Simulated assay, not measured.
Amino acid sequence: MSRNIHKEDEALAKDVGRMQELMFSLGRRRSLRDPIASTCEQLQFTPPQVHALLWLGLDGSLTMGELAKRLGVTEKTVTGVVDRLEREGHIVRERGDTDRRIVRCRLTDKGKQTFAKLDRSMHRSMGVVMGMLDPDDRQALFRVLEKLLVKLDSATPDDPSASGT
């Protein structure tokens, strides 16, 4: 039985390597790396600023901690991102009523307009990418991503099945 587990580990390691190779290959193709990269340049935003606008536009008001987590940055780093977006009138910070230590960010009307531009740009770019696949391949991609989301939602940090074993 341990021999079978070893083979499964080898197969998983091989698949992880293949996935990394494919992701790096996609990342080298600028048009596929980030569907909104050209919009960042046009609007003179950094990628974290664009992603902050997108998350706030999609999910509404978020705390600084929630926003930092979504961006994959520290709370100290997200402060700089929020500072610039606030200075330029795209977002506002609001303190919590019950706990003044909690700071939430939300889009202003100007931020909502910028989000709408970003959303349209991303939709166009994703249309180009998705158009490279035939309908059956798109459906297969959706099935895999949806399955991954379900597994991620049901996994706990200490759950060995989260790693696929």
Score class of each variant (00 low, 15 high):
Trp55His: 09
Phe115Ala: 02
Thr63Lys: 12
Val73Glu: 07
Val128Gly: 13
Lys76Thr: 08
Gln42Lys: 14
Thr79Gly: 04
Gly89Glu: 06
Arg28Cys: 01
Val92Thr: 12
Ile91Thr: 10
Cys105Thr: 06
Thr98Glu: 15
Val50Met: 07
Gly96Tyr: 03
Val129Tyr: 04
Gln44Cys: 07
Ser25Gln: 07
Leu54Val: 14
Leu62Gly: 01
Thr46Ser: 10
Arg33Met: 11
Gly60Leu: 07
Thr98Pro: 03
Met23Pro: 00
Glu75Asp: 09
Asp109Glu: 12
Ser38Gln: 10
Arg93Ala: 01
Glu66Lys: 14
Arg101His: 13
Arg104Ser: 14
Ala52Asp: 02
Lys14Gly: 12
Ser25Cys: 03
Asp59Tyr: 14
Arg70Val: 10
His51Asn: 15
Gln20Ala: 07
Leu26Ala: 05
Ser25Arg: 05
Val103Asn: 09
Glu21Gln: 09
Asp119Tyr: 09
Leu67Trp: 02
Thr46Glu: 09
Lys112Pro: 00
Pro47Thr: 06
Leu22Val: 13
Arg70Thr: 02
Arg124Tyr: 10
Leu62Ser: 00
Gln44Thr: 07
Asp119His: 15
Ser38Glu: 12
Glu66Trp: 05
Thr114Ala: 08
Leu56Glu: 08
Asp59Gln: 15
Arg84Ala: 09
Cys40Lys: 09
Pro47Ile: 11
Asp34Arg: 12
Leu26Phe: 02
Ile36Val: 15
Leu107Cys: 05
Ile91Arg: 03
Thr79Arg: 01
Asp119Trp: 04
Thr108Ser: 14
Leu56Tyr: 04
Thr39Asp: 06
Met64Trp: 04
Lys117Val: 08
Asp119Leu: 11
Cys105Pro: 03
Phe24Cys: 00
Gly96His: 04
Ser125Asn: 05
Ser38Cys: 01
Val103Trp: 00
Gly65Tyr: 11
Thr39Pro: 00
Asp83Tyr: 08
Phe45Asp: 04
Gln113Met: 10
Ile102Glu: 14
Arg87Ile: 02
Asp99Trp: 05
Leu26Tyr: 01
Leu53Val: 11
Gly96Ile: 03
Cys40Ala: 14
Lys14Ser: 14
Lys112Met: 06
Arg30Leu: 11
Gly72Thr: 00
Lys117His: 04
His51Glu: 15
Val129Arg: 11
Lys117Tyr: 00
Asp15Thr: 14
Arg104Glu: 13
Arg100Gly: 03
Asp99Glu: 08
Arg101Pro: 04
Leu71Met: 06
Asp99Gly: 10
Gln42Asp: 15
Asp83Gly: 01
Glu21Val: 05
Asp109Arg: 13
Thr63Pro: 00
Val81Tyr: 06
